[in-house]
């Protein structure tokens, strides 16, 4: 069953431009130059109930804009969105009860009070009974590994504890669709792992649909079977992570240690030699011919050691994100 259906979604903004310097400022003060920016450009995808989907792309690729359109904070310029059978931009109360948006760097908990106070307000806003409230707090707190932290002022909590409390506050009304924008931003490895485990447990327990963005590829690789890759507002990939790896890097990385030195030209026919030093040779071999070529290498040479590696996904996508764009 489709929980999220997005069809040719687009969003354009009007922005003002200004050159640096005081003269340009004065000019800008009198007459402004404006132009349109396409933040999201004709995106379509569907997400089924209970899926966890990773949403990746460089900064400013349009991830947050898309997330905000999905939860109804921003109206689309073009195209249609449906989430849990609702049109988000109407922001009906029954829709709002079904979803949640967590933004890693933005806090909704009241800074100078313990999280419990903010949670109580949330419980009243979402109309939970006292019983439901305490049951859910107990349950979510134990899943997140929180206890006394809930009665300490938010400003005294560590970043990780704060994020967990933030998650608790956002999930108190037990939403079935979760939009998470950088939920692990700035957290240390342990806290990241904790948040990941929690999200996966929540997903399994309630069959919730989760769409998350993250800069940490670890979040994506461990949680999401499916990823959406977006760049400059356009959707470039929708599918499994392994398919993305294949698309990004059609070759595999083979490292051979030969028993005796050989002439380098003889190995070149098996694949592109990246590096050769004495008896150590590093080759790139296309995935499709990997087995046949390795078999033939093994039968033609005396091999001491052989290792086949995937270029790590973090590196691939990290490189891609660092470049900002990969199609030009």
């Amino acid at each position: 069953m489709k929980t999220i259906a997005v069809d040719s979604l687009s969003k354009s903004y009007l922005v003002t431009e200004k050159k640096p310097g005081i003269r340009a400022s004065l000019k800008h003060f009198v007459a402004r130059k404006t132009s349109f920016i396409r933040a999201v450009d004709n995106i379509s995808f569907n997400i089924n109930e209970g899926e966890i989907v990773g949403f990746i792309g460089s900064n400013g690729a349009g991830k947050t804009t898309t997330l905000k359109m999905l939860c109804g904070l921003i109206y689309p310029s073009y195209g249609s969105v449906s989430v849990a059978g609702y049109i988000p931009k109407l922001r009906e109360k029954s829709f709002l009860r079904k979803i949640t948006l967590v933004m890693g760097q933005k806090q909704q908990l009241i800074w100078d009070l313990p999280p419990m106070d903010s949670l109580r307000v949330n419980a009243a806003v979402y109309g939970l009974t006292d019983r439901e409230f305490s049951l859910r707090i107990d349950e979510l707190a134990s899943m997140l590994g929180l206890n006394t932290e809930l009665s300490r002022p938010v400003r005294k909590l560590s970043l990780g504890q704060r994020m967990k409390a933030e998650l608790l506050a956002s999930l108190l009304h037990r939403p079935s669709v979760l939009f998470l924008d950088e939920p692990t931003l700035g957290l240390d490895i342990n806290a990241q792992l904790r948040v990941r485990e929690f999200l996966s447990a929540y997903n399994q327990k309630y069959g919730a649909t989760i769409l998350l963005t993250s800069h940490y590829m670890g979040d994506i690789t461990s949680l999401c079977k499916r990823v959406l890759l977006i760049d400059k507002g356009k959707l470039f990939h929708d599918g499994s992570l392994s398919a993305l790896t294949e698309q990004l890097s059609p070759c595999r990385f083979v490292q051979i240690e030969l028993a005796e030195p050989v002439n380098d030209i003889s190995l070149a026919k098996y694949g592109e030699i990246v590096h050769q030093e004495g008896q150590l040779v590093k080759l790139l071999i296309p995935r499709s011919e990997l087995t046949s070529r390795i078999t033939s290498i093994l039968s033609n040479y005396q091999i001491k050691d052989l290792e086949v590696k995937d270029p790590p996904i973090e590196q691939l996508i990290g490189k891609l994100l660092a470049l900002g764009s990969f199609n030009d």
């Binding site: 200004k18 310097g21 005081i22 400022s25 004065l26 800008h28 003060f29």
Partner: peptide, 12 residues
Amino acid sequence: WSTSIASELEYQ
């Protein structure tokens, strides 16, 4: 000061 004036002039 010149940069702070510039940034203030952003707001007509």
